[in-house]
């Protein structure tokens, strides 16, 4: 088992947002979490990545055999968890190259590995740049500063490619992207998939799932997973809207 979330409850300040999430992900799987706005999708992603604004009030998360909630955000990353941000942050004065080099080597240090030498790093970077259809000029610019929405999301997946996580959480990676950008992003993720890693796609729409086909789809509503199914569930949601889920849940 790669990720096991058991009865996870979390919120922000006094407000309870996640009201008992249960989810299990095996290596090699792609899971999607869908749900209406405000259902708790991004909260789940944030809690897993270790964002401090959120309080965990109950439950447990085991990642790769470790108690995830006990780890700092950087240790979670080094253990192999990756969050693709819904809104990647602009960092003035820090080039993407310098940033990703620091990140790769810090993760290696955590794992007791030597830092990558310049040649090996450059080779790896060139490979991943090609994968995401990015150029050197873009990586020399300040991280995400002045990037278009599509460039920012491509940069997220580029970072994922460089860090080679065991579990990648894609938080609304498709939001605001045109179809070409979605194709590049999804194509990148697909090429990074293997039997040893897994992907958790968080999305409001079915569109991304045309390219990134999930094994399992969960519907999150009001802080709980209320329905789990196969990829056909996404089509049903797209067709009927989230109201059918809401009605189903509310009638229980």
């Amino acid at each position: 088992m790669l990720l096991r979330i058991h009865n996870l409850q979390a919120g922000i300040e006094e407000k309870e947002i996640l009201k008992g999430i249960n989810l299990e992900i095996q290596p090699g799987e792609v899971h999607a979490i869908m749900g209406p706005n405000g259902s708790g999708k991004s909260t789940l992603a944030s809690v897993l990545a270790g964002r401090q604004d959120y309080n965990v009030t109950g439950g447990s998360v085991t990642f790769n055999g470790k108690d995830l909630l006990e780890l700092s955000p950087e240790a979670r990353a080094a253990e192999g968890l990756f969050l693709s941000f819904q809104y990647p942050v602009e960092i003035p004065g820090l080039s993407t190259t310098n940033f990703i080099k620091t990140a790769v080597n810090e993760v290696r240090k955590y794992r007791g590995e030597e830092p990558l030498d310049a040649v090996a790093f450059l080779k790896m970077m060139k490979e991943k740049m090609a994968l995401m259809e990015m150029d050197q000029a873009m990586l020399s610019r300040s991280l995400n500063e002045g990037f278009s929405g599509g460039e920012k999301k491509r940069n997220e997946i580029f970072q994922m490619a460089m860090l080679q996580p065991k579990l990648a959480i894609l938080d609304e990676t498709d939001s605001g992207l045109d179809i070409d950008a979605i194709r590049i992003v999804a194509n990148g993720v697909n090429k990074l998939r293997s039997k040893d890693n897994a992907v958790l796609v968080i999305t409001h729409y079915q569109r991304l799932l045309d390219y990134l086909v999930p094994d399992v789809i969960h519907v999150l509503y009001n802080g709980r997973i209320v329905k789990t199914g196969t990829k056909e569930l996404a089509l049903e949601l797209e067709e009927k809207g989230y109201d059918f889920i809401k009605n189903e849940v509310n009638s229980l």
Binding site: P73, R76, L83, F85, I91, G93, L94, F99, E106, L163
Partner: peptide, 25 residues
């Protein structure tokens, strides 16, 4: 920004240093 850098495996202190270096750049 700090959380963003940490989420990529960069420890808290190093992340602060990178942010401030960027600020000064």
């Amino acid at each position: 920004g700090l959380f963003y850098l940490q989420s990529r495996g960069i420890p808290y202190k190093a992340a602060i240093a990178l942010l401030l270096q960027g600020f000064a750049m």
